[in-house]
């Protein structure tokens, strides 16, 4: 199987709802055999982008290719090759869980064994439960099973672990990683930083319909191979903060949290730590908190947008 061609190419995609710009010239690429996260706050344009890849929406401008095909024009050729998990719903309210999964399986030529799949996703003991009586997490797992059962080359999963308990989340992550190992390309949307960080080979952070950063989780979170110092400080006169930027360098990011606190974030090593401590002493400041560690995707988002990503 030639792997040269990317699984998904989105090129300057524009989508609007009425006057509202949902996707604003968004470009991204998903390589085959990877888990790629589209990470962003609610309303950033994640689902709209995904649904354009799935052929539900026609690009207003720009283009989308999945497995080299146009999801609109080549819909019939593409659909059997992809698996789709919607953010919610997708089953009759009176249908039994296994009945629904078996039905989707019958629409495919070489489906997975539905018994095995339901076992793996912990659906075995609710197989005869009508869809409307399944818990939110069970409905999510059934939706995931429906996306996988046709043995697709690419799966698009929209917020796959929303509403799942921690155990089910871990099971889902394991399953997605096993699929990648078996050569399936996984595209997922999430607003959980930890999910993107832990699971993905590649992360595209999107905000207001644009990609604001792309990279492996390691590349996005490492800055100059230094640790990141994060502190929450009381409000200080401007001059005092200039002293801090002299220590931490031009990469220092200062952003207000509320009327009384600011957050300062910057790269640090052992030398800077001692200097910061002397700076506290000099200004008679005690930080509300002081943490040292790797940057997280949360920090990256905060730096890029000045906002916290809403969980």
């Amino acid at each position: 199987m030639p792997l040269a061609e990317p699984a998904v190419v989105v090129d300057r995609l524009v989508m609007k709802y009425g006057d509202k710009l949902a996707v604003n010239s968004l470009s991204l690429q998903v390589d085959r055999g990877t888990i790629t996260s589209v990470l962003g706050p609610n309303g950033a344009g994640k689902t709209t982008t995904l649904e354009t890849c799935e052929g539900y929406r026609r690009p207003m401008s720009g283009s989308v290719r999945v497995l080299g095909l146009d999801p609109q024009k080549d819909r019939r050729a593409l659909l059997p090759r992809i698996g789709v998990m919607l953010q919610s719903g997708g089953a009759w309210s009176g249908v039994r869980a296994m009945e629904m999964l078996d039905h989707i399986a019958k629409l495919h030529a070489n489906p997975l064994d539905t018994g095995m799949l339901s076992e793996r996703l912990g659906l075995a003991d609710c197989g005869r439960t009508p869809y409307r009586r399944l818990s939110g997490g069970q409905q999510q797992r059934l939706g995931l099973a429906m996306a996988l059962v046709g043995r697709p080359e690419v799966v698009f999963v929209d917020e796959p672990t929303a509403g799942m308990d921690p155990h089910a989340r871990r099971t889902t992550w394991d399953l997605l990683q096993e699929m990648r190992a078996d050569g399936v390309t996984v595209v997922l949307t999430t607003h959980h930083m930890d999910e993107a960080e832990r699971l993905s080979d590649m992360v595209h952070i999107i905000d207001h319909g644009r990609v604001i950063a792309s990279g492996t989780p390691e590349a996005l979170t490492s800055s100059n191979h230094k640790a990141t110092l994060r502190m929450v400080l009381p409000l200080l006169p401007d001059g005092a903060l200039q002293g801090l930027s002299a220590i931490l360098g031009p990469d220092l990011e200062v952003s207000p949290i509320d009327d009384a606190r600011v957050q300062a974030l910057g790269p640090a090593d052992s030398g800077t730590l001692a200097a910061v401590a002397r700076w506290y002493e000099h200004h008679e400041v005690l930080p509300f908190s002081l943490t040292l560690g790797q940057r997280t995707l949360e920090d990256v988002f905060l730096e890029l947008t000045g906002r916290e990503m809403e969980a």
């Binding site: 992809i82 699929m179 190992a181 078996d182 399936v184």
Partner: peptide
């Protein structure tokens, strides 16, 4: 592997009957 891709639609007649 378990999930190795092997995609494709069932013959249309079978899909319609299932539906």
């Amino acid at each position: 592997g378990t999930f190795t891709p092997d995609p494709g639609g069932a013959p249309l007649g079978r899909q319609v009957m299932a539906q």
